[in-house]
Amino acid sequence: MIINNLKLIREKKKISQSELAALLEVSRQTINGIEKNKYNASLQLALKIAYYLNTPLEDIFQWQ
C-alpha cells in the first residue's frame, strides 16, 4: 500500500492544485485524482512532483 502525502505537503508549501498542475503541465483534475488516490502517478510525474515541491519522493509517496 502507498501512503500519499501530496496534499499535506502541497498545502504546507502554500501551493494550490492549479499552480502545481500548471508547473507539471497536467490538469488540476489530475492532481486532485492523485491526492484522492483515484489515480496513480506515473514514475515520471511522481519525480516531477518531488522536484517542483523540493521534497524527496519517498516523503510524498511512502510504501507501507
Rank of each mutant, 00 (worst) to 15 (best):
M1T: 10
M1A: 09
M1I: 12
M1C: 14
M1S: 08
M1P: 10
M1R: 10
M1G: 08
I2S: 08
I2R: 09
I2F: 12
I2A: 08
I3E: 07
I3H: 08
I3K: 13
I3M: 13
I3V: 14
N4T: 03
N4H: 04
N4V: 06
N4M: 05
N4Y: 04
N4G: 04
N5A: 06
N5H: 08
N5K: 07
N5T: 03
N5R: 08
L6G: 02
L6H: 01
L6R: 01
L6Q: 01
L6P: 01
L6F: 00
K7L: 07
K7Q: 12
K7C: 09
K7P: 03
K7D: 03
K7A: 11
K7E: 08
L8W: 08
L8T: 15
L8Q: 15
L8H: 13
L8R: 14
I9T: 05
I9P: 01
I9H: 06
I9G: 01
I9K: 02
R10Y: 04
R10Q: 02
R10D: 02
R10W: 06
E11V: 11
E11D: 08
E11N: 09
E11C: 11
E11P: 01
E11Q: 13
K12A: 15
K12P: 01
K12I: 10
K13E: 06
K13I: 07
K13L: 13
K13Q: 12
K13F: 11
K13G: 05
K14M: 11
K14W: 05
K14Y: 06
I15H: 02
I15C: 06
I15R: 02
I15S: 00
I15M: 15
I15E: 00
S16F: 07
S16G: 06
S16D: 04
S16I: 04
Q17P: 04
Q17D: 03
Q17I: 13
Q17H: 03
S18L: 11
S18M: 12
S18A: 14
S18C: 13
E19C: 08
E19F: 08
E19L: 07
E19V: 09
E19Y: 10
E19S: 10
E19K: 14
L20M: 05
L20E: 00
A21Q: 01
A21L: 02
A21N: 02
A21M: 03
A21G: 06
A22K: 13
A22I: 11
A22V: 10
A22Q: 12
A22D: 12
A22P: 00
A22L: 11
A22F: 10
L23F: 14
L23N: 08
L23H: 12
L23C: 11
L23R: 09
L23D: 06
L24K: 00
L24S: 04
L24E: 00
L24A: 09
L24D: 00
L24P: 00
L24N: 00
E25C: 15
E25W: 06
E25P: 05
E25V: 07
V26D: 00
V26W: 03
V26S: 02
V26G: 01
V26Y: 03
V26E: 03
S27G: 06
S27H: 06
S27L: 02
S27Q: 05
S27E: 06
R28F: 09
R28V: 15
R28W: 15
R28C: 12
R28D: 10
R28K: 13
R28I: 15
Q29F: 08
Q29L: 09
Q29D: 15
Q29Y: 10
T30Y: 15
T30L: 15
T30P: 01
T30G: 01
I31H: 00
I31E: 01
I31D: 01
I31W: 01
N32C: 08
N32L: 09
N32A: 15
N32H: 11
G33L: 15
G33R: 15
G33Y: 12
G33N: 15
G33H: 12
G33W: 13
I34N: 01
I34Y: 02
I34D: 01
I34G: 00
I34F: 03
I34A: 02
I34H: 02
E35D: 02
E35T: 03
E35K: 02
E35F: 03
E35W: 03
E35Q: 03
E35M: 03
K36H: 13
K36S: 14
K36Y: 06
K36A: 13
K36G: 09
K36N: 15
N37K: 09
N37E: 05
N37T: 04
N37M: 09
N37P: 01
K38R: 13
K38F: 12
K38A: 11
K38Q: 14
K38N: 09
Y39F: 14
Y39M: 13
Y39E: 10
Y39N: 07
N40S: 14
N40W: 10
N40F: 12
N40D: 09
A41T: 12
A41S: 06
A41K: 02
A41Q: 02
S42L: 03
S42K: 05
S42F: 04
S42T: 12
L43N: 06
Q44E: 15
Q44Y: 12
Q44H: 13
Q44F: 11
Q44T: 14
L45G: 00
L45D: 02
L45Q: 05
L45I: 08
L45W: 03
A46K: 12
A46R: 11
L47V: 12
L47H: 10
L47T: 12
L47N: 09
L47D: 04
L47G: 07
L47R: 13
L47W: 08
L47C: 15
K48W: 05
K48C: 08
K48Q: 08
K48I: 04
I49W: 01
I49S: 00
I49E: 00
A50L: 03
A50E: 03
A50R: 03
A50I: 03
Y51S: 08
Y51W: 10
Y51P: 00
Y52K: 05
Y52V: 15
Y52I: 15
Y52A: 14
Y52M: 10
Y52E: 05
L53M: 06
L53T: 02
L53S: 02
L53V: 03
L53K: 01
N54I: 04
N54W: 06
N54S: 11
N54Y: 05
N54R: 10
T55Q: 05
T55H: 07
T55K: 03
T55G: 03
P56F: 05
P56Y: 04
P56A: 08
P56N: 08
P56S: 08
L57E: 01
L57K: 03
L57H: 03
E58D: 12
E58N: 12
D59L: 11
D59N: 09
D59A: 10
D59H: 11
D59Y: 09
I60T: 03
I60N: 01
I60E: 00
I60W: 02
I60S: 01
F61Y: 04
Q62C: 11
Q62P: 12
W63R: 06
W63G: 05
W63Q: 05
Q64D: 14
Q64E: 14
Q64R: 11
Q64K: 13
Q64I: 08
Q64N: 12
